[in-house]
Amino acid sequence: MDTGAIRRRVALGMAVLSASGLLALAAPGNAQAASYCAGRKVKDLSFSTGVVHVYKHDGYVCAVTFPAKPSATRRSMSVGVQARGNRPVVDKGRYSHHAGPVTVHAGHRCVWITGSVGRGTVSSGWILC
């Protein structure tokens, strides 16, 4: 193999590594939640101290709460999903990274999503009807 071919291969390898690094930096929040919930993201519910990512797949709705500012210390967090006509499913506790995931079968029914980090809260009302 001549020197020109080696340089081209090294340049191609560097381009691929650079592109993958940029993609990883471009959407870290989506990558986090996607590893916890199956399906496609249908909504982000942002609030002062965090965000709830909501996913839907084959009639199931999944939600995960993340804090706005990551921290190593544990703090109060929660996430809840309720399909209309059913009781809410809630994950509540003291976490450092995230609350959830919480998954319920909603079928074609509306769902109500709640989330909190510390004193900040969010409540969606009936959505995804």
Score class of each variant (00 low, 15 high):
Met1Ile: 01
Asp2Gln: 11
Arg7Pro: 03
Arg9Asp: 14
Arg9Ser: 13
Leu12Cys: 03
Met14Lys: 11
Ser18Thr: 15
Gly21Phe: 05
Leu23Asn: 15
Leu23Ile: 09
Ala24His: 10
Ala24Trp: 10
Ala26Leu: 13
Asn30Thr: 09
Gln32Asp: 09
Gln32Val: 12
Gln32Ile: 10
Ala33Asp: 11
Ser35Met: 07
Tyr36Met: 10
Ala38Lys: 07
Ala38Trp: 08
Gly39Met: 04
Arg40Lys: 10
Val42Tyr: 01
Val42Met: 08
Lys43Phe: 11
Asp44Gln: 13
Leu45Pro: 04
Ser46Arg: 08
Ser46Asn: 14
Phe47Asn: 06
Ser48Ala: 14
Thr49Ser: 15
Val51Gln: 08
Val52Asp: 06
His53Lys: 12
Val54Thr: 01
Tyr55His: 10
Gly59His: 14
Val61Asp: 02
Ala63Tyr: 00
Ala63Ile: 01
Val64Leu: 13
Val64Asn: 06
Thr65Ala: 15
Phe66His: 02
Phe66Leu: 11
Pro67Asn: 14
Pro67Arg: 13
Pro70Gln: 06
Ser71Glu: 10
Ala72Tyr: 15
Thr73Gly: 01
Thr73Phe: 12
Ser78Asn: 02
Ser78His: 05
Val79Asn: 03
Gly80Lys: 04
Val81Leu: 04
Arg84Lys: 14
Arg84Tyr: 12
Arg84Gly: 04
Gly85Trp: 02
Asn86Trp: 08
Arg87Asp: 15
Val89Asp: 03
Val89Glu: 03
Val90Phe: 04
Asp91Tyr: 07
Asp91Ile: 03
Lys92Met: 12
Lys92Cys: 01
Gly93Tyr: 06
Arg94Trp: 14
Ser96Phe: 12
Ser96Arg: 15
His97Trp: 13
His98Phe: 11
His98Ala: 10
His98Thr: 02
Pro101Ile: 01
Pro101Asp: 14
Val102Asn: 04
Val102Thr: 00
Thr103Trp: 06
Val104Met: 02
His105Tyr: 12
Trp112Asp: 12
Trp112His: 12
Trp112Ala: 03
Ser116Gln: 12
Ser116Asn: 10
Val117Asn: 02
Gly118Ile: 06
Gly118Phe: 03
Gly120His: 02
Ser124Thr: 07
Gly125Asn: 11
Gly125Arg: 01
Trp126Ile: 07
Ile127Tyr: 05
Cys129Thr: 03
